[in-house]
Structure formats: structure tokens, C-alpha cells
Amino acid sequence: MGYEVEKSDAQWREELTDEEYRVLRQAGTEQAFTGEYTDTRTVGVYTCRGCGTELFRSGTKFDSHCGWPSFYDPADSEAVELLPDHSIPGRPRTEVRCSSCGSHLGHVFSGEGYGTPTDQRYCINSIAVRLEPEKG
């Protein structure tokens, strides 16, 4: 699949830290409760660490107590792409990727009863995004 932002593997490795590369380009997961944005309440926009595309806004972030930042809706439905993930046998999931560069962001879950407007939890790795605080 072609993306708006295309880079060679060597370019990704040069631009990202080893841990950023493991998560964004190899669909890894950062350890729970270790990410810099897990409990952040700063007002702003979350962008893709790989390409800078706006992905989520702080107004849709909520406390899920799952160990990763959680959002109930992307800033723009076309900002993310959703793909079937069968990497864990017997536990199908839906992977969330940046639709501009294909970087792995995390997974989305539905029907967990959080009481959010969409009944969805976009469980996103902190290392996959950057928070741009609202200028006040």
C-alpha cells in the first residue's frame, strides 16, 4: 500500500530512536504505564511521531487506566487506518496506523463500557505520537 509519506527503511532507522522504530515500524508495544502521555491532561493536538500528521485531540483523551493513552475518536477519521491484526492467536484485534506514513500507533477496541461518545478506546503508544500543546 502506498502512503503519502514514503521513506526507506534506512531513512526510518536514521530518523527514529531504536524504541520509536520498534513501535512505529515493527508494530511493537511500549511497556504499560511507562509512556510520557499516559496520564497527561495538557490541552493540545497529538501528531504522528513519524510524519507529523494530526491524529488525535486532547478533548477526546480519557482515563481508561489501561497503561496507555486512550482516545475515543481520531481528530479526522481519515487520519488513521484500521487493519485486522491476528498476531496473537485466538485474539483478533484491530491495528491503528497513521494513514499518511503507515506507522503503527496501537489498537482500537469497542464495547468495553467506558461510556465515551463512540464506545471505542484507541489505545495508543505514547512513543508513536507527539503532543503539541495549545498555545495560550
Results as ranks from 00 to 15, higher is better:
S64V: 11
H65S: 14
H65L: 14
C66R: 01
C66N: 01
W68N: 08
W68H: 04
W68G: 14
P69E: 12
P69Q: 05
P69Y: 09
S70H: 03
S70L: 04
S70K: 00
S70F: 07
F71R: 02
F71G: 06
F71Y: 09
Y72I: 02
Y72D: 11
D73P: 07
P74D: 04
P74R: 00
P74T: 00
A75W: 12
D76T: 05
D76H: 10
D76A: 14
D76G: 05
S77D: 15
S77W: 12
E78W: 04
A79C: 09
A79W: 07
V80C: 11
V80D: 13
V80H: 11
V80W: 10
V80N: 09
E81H: 09
L82T: 09
L82E: 15
L82S: 06
L83W: 08
P84G: 03
P84H: 02
P84V: 05
D85T: 02
D85G: 10
D85R: 00
H86L: 15
P89T: 02
P89A: 13
G90S: 03
R91A: 08
R91L: 14
P92K: 04
P92I: 02
P92A: 04
P92D: 12
P92G: 01
R93W: 12
R93Q: 09
R93L: 07
T94V: 14
E95F: 01
E95Q: 12
V96H: 10
V96Y: 11
R97N: 08
R97D: 08
R97E: 07
S99I: 05
S99H: 02
S100C: 12
S100L: 13
S100K: 13
C101N: 02
C101S: 12
G102C: 13
G102F: 14
G102T: 03
G102S: 11
S103D: 10
S103A: 15
S103Q: 08
H104C: 03
L105N: 05
L105W: 02
L105I: 04
L105V: 00
G106L: 01
H107E: 04
H107M: 04
V108W: 13
V108T: 01
V108Y: 12
F109D: 03
F109C: 14
F109Y: 10
S110E: 15
S110A: 15
G111L: 09
E112N: 10
G113P: 06
G113N: 02
G113Y: 03
Y114M: 11
G115W: 11
G115R: 00
G115N: 05
T116F: 15
P117G: 06
P117I: 00
D119Q: 06
D119Y: 07
D119S: 13
D119I: 06
Q120S: 02
Q120Y: 12
R121S: 09
R121T: 03
Y122T: 00
C123N: 06
C123H: 06
C123I: 01
I124S: 13
I124T: 01
I124V: 15
N125M: 07
N125D: 13
N125V: 04
N125S: 11
N125R: 00
N125W: 08
S126M: 09
S126R: 01
S126I: 02
I127F: 13
A128M: 05
A128W: 02
A128E: 07
A128K: 00
V129H: 11
V129S: 13
V129M: 15
R130H: 14
L131Q: 07
L131V: 05
E132V: 15
P133I: 05
P133D: 01
